[in-house]
Design a binder for these strands. Sequence first.
DNA 1: TGATGATTTGAACACTGTCAAGTTTAGTGA
DNA 2: TCACTAAACTTGACAGTGTTCAAATCATCA
Lengths: 206, 206
Amino acid sequence: MFMSVAKVVRNSYHHGNLKSALISSAIKLIRKNGPYNLSLREVSSELGVSPSAAYHYFPDKESLVHGIGEYLFTELAVLTEKSLEKFPGKSARATKLRFREIGRAYFNWARKEPNLFRLMFGGFCSIDREKSHIDDASFKILEKTLDELVACGVMPSNLRPFGEIMAWSSVHGAVNLIIEGHLPESSFEELLDGLELALGVKHERS
Amino acid sequence: MFMSVAKVVRNSYHHGNLKSALISSAIKLIRKNGPYNLSLREVSSELGVSPSAAYHYFPDKESLVHGIGEYLFTELAVLTEKSLEKFPGKSARATKLRFREIGRAYFNWARKEPNLFRLMFGGFCSIDREKSHIDDASFKILEKTLDELVACGVMPSNLRPFGEIMAWSSVHGAVNLIIEGHLPESSFEELLDGLELALGVKHERS
DNA sequence: TGATGATTTGAACACTGTCAAGTTTAGTGA
DNA sequence: TCACTAAACTTGACAGTGTTCAAATCATCA
């Protein structure tokens, strides 16, 4: 149970923007040590602030983690959207590449930040039922791209109703299994092939 | 930070089978409180044993959790196999039902024991690479059933190579997303429909 | 019986989350 | 300029945590 000392001395009594500083410092530590193993005291000491300072912004540790989760969900969506800009246009080819890119962005994010991925989907941030996450930004991106696949004639419309559930579940599942070591990394592209086959996405020879 | 007191007085100095007692007691607590939040001291006190007794069998808390993970993986496989006995025979109908049952067993297990599911797939038990989990008991059951689907002519053999990755990923992903509240429970049967469609499993009207 | 080796304990250490009460500060209105 | 106030942060404490290690206990076999 060793911990590195990283006390930071600040000049003013008031920190300025402690709330967001807490979040980003906590993210940094979670990246290194995992979502379990986050220490509020370590976060505080990183910021040169007393251990109880955080309690002015978060009722407890759990809600800080929850806040981080929400932050990460929007960040992932932004990141996905950005990576779709690489393939603009309404052509069948571009649309197919965008579809694949959604999955790859998801995968790359998780591979680069496995501990943040675990935080998002490991039961640390409980979602309020009823709403589910159907209205997530990420989910909307997926919906839109699936619609476009149908629109440009690449995906048959009778398979469209299964689009969201099949794509999200299989990609998410594969990513999870891969980063936990249950499947090799090479499985991911294989899954994308299978998914496109499943959704009837037509292939041209490359 | 409240904890229930459940001290157990035992008669003999030696416990007898402390190792397995530690595991099953820890499982009980994890079911209630989640994999993070497991307290070694609470486990010990439940068994009426000193906090340091566990260290004779496990080098640290992490390896106890790891041991539990391995135990759960085999238990899930046994449970799956058992539930397949409900649909014996080589008929197309029975084989299809078995295939669906694998997914349902997975889902039911996770819904009944979300915290154990989180322990298994939330990064608490790291798998030694290279091996992956390809040689898991659960995986073998899936492989066998997919082969049988082809054998009885229900699934086209050109889709067979995608069987494992598609089935395991999508089922696992859906289960994970559902128990974390990102998808409604009703999504699961929808996913199974989509999966069978994807793998070309023929439907007769029911 | 005595000795040996496997189990378990006790006490200590350095951590942790959390909270009530106190202290500092920035910002207001007079 | 000054007092006042509400917000931001600290102090000090409490209970609970994982972990270590010497000492105590027990079961077993020579």
